[in-house]
């Protein structure tokens, strides 16, 4: 039998700067030059004002838990060995919400509203996944 590898991001023109920053240990998203909106997922246009001008700004890495689930029945063979695992939606201090894992915290202690901070999980020489852990700093 062969192991089914976990799917990893394959970046495109819009998303490559996000993944490159993560690999360097920074959480960066596009901030619109015209209206200041910080957006996620990365996109060619600002969804608020449709401006194409933006800057990739470094974020604080601070967030709160918006929703969390614990997957018990794997939805894809690549994750069969990981169950039960959490998938959490965090709301970043700058506004956007994103899917992630909470680490350094038992699943049954995750709570909505819990303060968390970004950590970087280096998967291989090319890919790093941003994850979050309970906030230590204020």
């Amino acid at each position: 039998m062969f192991a089914i590898e976990k799917p990893l991001p394959r970046a495109n023109e819009d998303t490559a700067p996000y993944w490159a920053a993560a690999h360097k240990g920074e959480l960066r998203l596009q901030r619109c030059d015209d209206c200041g909106h910080v957006r996620f997922p990365p996109s060619a246009l600002c969804p608020r004002c449709l401006s194409q001008h933006h800057e990739w700004v470094k974020l604080s890495g601070r967030a709160t838990v918006f929703s969390w689930i614990v997957v018990h029945q794997s939805q894809h063979p690549a994750f069969n060995g990981d169950t039960p695992y959490n998938v959490t939606i965090v709301e970043l201090e700058e506004g956007p919400r994103m899917h992630t894992h909470i680490v350094d915290c038992p699943n049954d202690q995750i709570r909505i509203g819990m303060p968390v901070e970004v950590v970087f999980d280096r998967v291989n020489d090319e890919v790093t996944l941003p994850k979050f852990r309970p906030a230590k700093s204020k």
């Binding site: 997957v71 939805q75 990981d82 899917h99 894992h101």
Partner: peptide, 21 residues
């Protein structure tokens, strides 16, 4: 690429988040 690497696959995961909220 922003969900599947975290094992958030399919309608079941979204609907679990909706029930949670």
């Amino acid at each position: 690429e922003f969900q599947v690497p975290y094992g958030d696959v399919g309608a079941i995961c979204l609907m679990a988040h909706i029930k949670r909220r």
